[in-house]
Design a protein around this nucleic acid. Structure first.
Length: 928
DNA sequence: GTGTTCACG
DNA sequence: GACGTACGTGAACACC
């Protein structure tokens, strides 16, 4: 044990308010759990703060002595003075409780004294030591932002807010209380504190208290001369509550003579013992932080290969260019039983790119790259190119050798976003199985907390920065495809991906098992990679001639609308520029528009232009017309044409499995989930989606799936019954809420009820509903109240989700999918309310997403068993689109409806039926 | 790169 | 008492 330095006038003592810090860290930081489920978010926040403090303060303000002070659990002497003290405090959140002990362990692991005292609060102990050190002539810094400690500030004592990184001295105290530190107690005695339940004098806040104290000097004088106060209210309040003020003073005055036993000399600072600290941090699974500490303290840095957290060495990877080498790796892979696989291609598209190379990793740090289609890096690819290629194994030989391994049921293949590799390898005749996907494992544990791309996961879990793709291939128009990358560089980049993937799997897979998310992963995520890979490779047929005709038709209509707009405006301008439109409408024409966007620009969206059009103006009509056709042309007719694959003549979009917070899929390049349908002109786009000759398209969609799930989850008996009876649910809602009969109902009334039903799913607010159906906010409020009354269970459901999200940071779907909302603890109330609405919506939207995933996963087998030659083409959240020979359409409709309707069984028995509407047609429009 | 708008569920 | 507010996506375009 190092000899500690006695505390004297040259010393600088740091006293850390451990308890205060715990609560702030807990509320400010996203929830984080160790792989065994123990919550450790606040522990990490605490360790970071302590470490940063020790690192940052190595300069002139460096602590010579340091201790962390905690509240002792249970009551303190203040409860004897006033039994209501801190009586309103809710108990500590469930996931914070186990962290109290861990944070004390952390303090000790840092080699720092950890102090608490029965019957006293941390503040009293801090006050005692601070005054003791001050008396010895030392400097003191109290690390806390608690205003109750500000009474201690003096020439030699200051405070430091570690989260805001801000010093608090006398000047900041005056800012806060309007008086110097010596009078802070008087202010608090008068103003009280609702959080600690210190009564004070009712009606007097900090501002008034400061005014009074500055006038009368101190609390005793003020209370003696209270009768002289001119304002009647204040005078009477003070006279009536003088005793409360005196009790409050006893409560807020910190004790400076607590019977502390630890000597300050023992607080002398020493470097933490690397071994102890690293051991603790590893137990907490703070990987990035552990490495940082290891490097700084020069402790035992793990370097054995085989350890997922060992440093990554890009130069250790092997470039495989002979069959002999390849055979050796295949042998090694079979022995390992689990390997990471990554494919490199000459383009981004999984459905249109050529295979360039394959990487394998058999253990952390043991990876190879097998180049297959690299070309001469210097070659320009033009007619002068010599066509000289680097030595590599012929594609066919490599594929033939790898196929048995990649299809071997005894060897688990691990990938990152493996749907991509499945697609590429499938086009070379390899049906990879079994497999795991680190992206999807991460997604089931952490959806909503961060992205799940490899670079991000490597940074989070391994503290490692992967080589960026653009470092290898460049960016913009100078970008080269991967087959032109020299083999040495390609090996470093590509094999690193496989290495990282395998390491991530070693960390994430056990973590997922202890978090009990393996079932969600195995039943809702992993199988989807293959389902979607198959679907994307099939693609969907469009009529290219019809698309061309539509584009030119839209172009004509745009030109006409543009001319009309210029005519109406009286001059030429860019009709596509919202900025210029705003200037003309609300500047030059001086129309009353009102709405501004959040950046302060005039809003010119469809609601604004519709309003102006309804008032009889011509320009907004022309603009709306222009916008409609511009949208259809650029986003749909032109873009879809460009996405036709020249080989297959079909469009192969990509569906993302881990992009949303709720478990829905998303669709890109092109987005096939937002093809128009609501307007007549838009439907023309849907007519372009067609089947092969002799086939039809079948569209099958769930009817009201989200409302049905809401009825089930919230347990709303009347709603459930209505669904069982096959009623028109919006009409039924209207009848209940507005008290009108279903027979002969005004369509407007039904429309309003429909809006309420949707609103409920979205986390309704009176303002939002009022906006949607154009009624006053009061009226909207009445509708909502009536709704809650008629359907008991809904309001309760909403409260439950808000609470669950607040307590745990997440909510779950009926199948156990977890959706996280870090914003639920944001200090900004708007962010919080936003997160609350998300938490209300997510279990409904997410459960619906789970249901259709289950149906999709079963569909392939069901089609085969029924001998149907149908292929699944698209998913649009509550709808599946198939292509099937004409004469099998009816059978497909029956089968798809059955699989979709029974998708919950046997895992879950839903208390409402899931109805499916399915129809066949010669285009997607017709199949609706 | 950000903001606005608009297509879908 | 004021504040800002329906949920989830992706793509195109203007503008910096």
């Amino acid at each position: 044990m190092a000899i500690k330095k006695p505390l004297d006038e040259t010393s600088h003592l740091y006293l850390i308010d451990g308890s205060g810090y715990i609560f702030r860290a807990y509320h400010a930081l996203p929830p984080l759990t160790r792989s065994d489920g123990t919550p450790v978010g606040a522990v990490q926040g605490f360790c970071n703060m302590l470490w940063k403090l020790l690192e940052d303060l190595k300069g002139e303000d460096a602590p010579s002595h340091l201790a962390v002070i905690f509240d002792h659990s249970g009551k303190s002497f203040r409860n004897e003075i006033y039994d209501q003290y801190k009586a309103h405090r809710p108990p500590a959140p469930e996931d914070l409780v186990p962290q109290f002990g861990l944070i004390r362990d952390a303090t000790r692991a840092f080699g720092t004294p950890c102090i608490e005292l029965e019957n006293y609060e941390a503040d009293d102990i801090i006050a005692t030591y601070a005054r003791m050190a001050e008396a010895k002539g030392a400097k003191v810094t109290i690390v806390s932002s608690d205003k109750d400690l500000m009474q201690l500030v003096s020439d030699r004592i200051d405070m430091f807010d570690a989260m805001k990184n801000k010093r608090i001295e006398a000047e900041q105290v005056v800012e806060k209380f309007g008086v110097g530190p010596d009078r802070v107690i008087d202010i608090q005695s008068l103003a009280g504190d609702s959080v600690d339940n210190v009564p004070g004098v009712p009606g007097i806040g900090v501002k008034t208290a400061a005014l009074l104290i500055n006038e009368y000097g101190d609390l005793d004088t003020l209370l003696e001369r209270a009768g002289e106060i001119k304002q009647k209210g204040r005078r009477e309040k003070l006279l009536a509550h003088a005793e409360d003020a005196r009790i409050s003073r006893q409560l807020v005055t910190l004790k400076t003579d607590t019977p502390v036993t630890d000597e300050m000399d023992e607080f002398g600072i020493t470097d933490p013992d690397a071994e102890t600290l690293v051991k603790f941090l590893k137990e907490m699974e703070f990987r990035t932080f552990t490495r940082k500490v290891e490097e700084a303290l020069g402790g035992p840095v793990a370097d054995e290969t085989g350890d997922a957290t060992a440093p990554i060495d890009r130069d250790s990877y092997e470039c495989v260019t002979t069959m002999k080498q390849l055979q050796a790796w295949i042998e090694k892979a079979r022995t390992a039983g689990v390997i990471a696989v990554d494919t490199e291609t000459d383009a981004l598209s999984a459905t249109a790119s050529g295979l360039v190379g394959i990487c394998l990793a058999t253990a952390p740090g043991e990876a190879c790259y097998i180049p297959l289609a690299h070309v001469d890096p210097e070659g320009s690819g033009d007619m002068f190119d010599t066509g000289e290629k680097p030595d590599q194994i012929p594609m066919d030989d490599a594929i033939a050798a790898l196929k048995p391994l990649l299809e071997d049921p005894a060897v688990l293949k691990v990938g990152q976003n493996f749907k991509y590799d499945l697609s590429v390898l499938a086009r070379y005749g390899i049906d990879v199985a079994p497999y795991d996907d680190t992206m999807l494992i991460s997604y089931v544990m952490e959806a909503g907390l961060h992205g799940h791309g490899m670079d991000e996961l490597a940074e989070i879990h391994l503290g490692h920065q992967c080589i960026a793709f653009k470092e290898i291939c460049g960016t913009g128009k100078n970008q080269i495809s991967f087959d032109k990358v020299p083999l040495d560089k390609a090996t470093q980049y590509a094999a690193e991906d496989a290495d990282v993937t395998l390491r991530l799997w070693e960390i994430l897979k056990p973590a997922m098992v202890s978090k009990k998310k393996a079932t969600v992963y195995e039943t809702l995520e992993r199988p989807m990679a293959k389902v979607l890979s198959d679907m994307e490779r099939v693609g969907v047929k469009v009529d290219p001639d019809q698309l061309r005709r539509l584009s030119s038709d839209f172009a004509q209509k745009m030109a006409a609308a543009e001319a009309a707009a210029h005519e109406a405006a009286g001059r030429e301008f860019n009709v596509a520029s919202p900025k210029q439109i705003g200037e003309i409408l609300f500047g030059e024409m001086g129309l009353p528009g009102g709405k501004k966007t959040k950046t302060g620009a005039w809003s010119t969206d469809v609601t604004v232009l519709d309003q102006l059009a309804a008032e009889g103006h011509d320009l907004p009509v022309a603009l709306l017309e222009y916008r409609q056709y511009a949208k259809l042309k650029s986003t749909y007719s032109d873009a879809l044409f460009d996405h036709i694959n020249p080989q297959t003549k079909r469009i192969h979009g990509s569906f993302s499995l881990a992009a949303t917070t709720t478990g829905r899929l998303s669709s890109t390049e092109p987005n096939l989930q937002n093809i128009p349908i609501r307007t007549e002109a838009g439907r023309k786009i849907r007519e372009v989606f067609i089947p092969e000759p002799g086939h039809v398209l079948v569209a099958a969609d769930y009817s009201q799936i989200e409302l049905r799930l809401l009825a089930h989850i919230a347990g709303v008996e009347s709603l459930k019954q209505a669904f069982r009876d096959g009623q028109d649910i919006h009409a039924m809602t209207a009848s209940e809420v507005f008290g009108v009969p279903v027979e002969g109902m005004d369509p407007m009334v039904r429309r309003k009820a429909k809006a309420i039903n949707f609103g409920v799913i979205y986390g309704i607010s009176a303002f939002g509903l009022a906006n949607q159906i154009d009624v006053s906010r009061e009226e909207a409020k009445n509708f909502i109240d009536a709704y809650f009354e008629k359907f008991p269970g809904i309001a309760d459901y909403m409260e439950r989700m808000k609470k669950e999200a607040k307590d745990t940071g997440y909510v779950e779907t009926v199948f156990g999918r977890r959706c996280h909302f870090p914003g639920i603890r944001d200090k900004n109330p708007n962010m919080r309310m936003f997160a609350e609405r998300q938490a209300i919506n997510a279990p409904i939207q997410g459960s619906a997403a789970d249901v259709i995933r289950r149906a999709m996963i079963r569909m392939d087998d069901a089609l085969r068993a029924a001998n149907l030659d149908a292929r699944m083409l698209l998913q649009v959240h509550d709808e599946l689109v198939f292509e099937v020979p004409e004469d099998q359409a009816d059978r497909l409709i029956d089968l798809a409806s059955k699989v979709m309707g029974e998708a919950c069984a046997p895992a879950l028995e839903l208390s409402v039926p899931l109805d499916v509407d399915a129809k066949a047609g010669k285009s997607w429009a017709e199949a609706h």
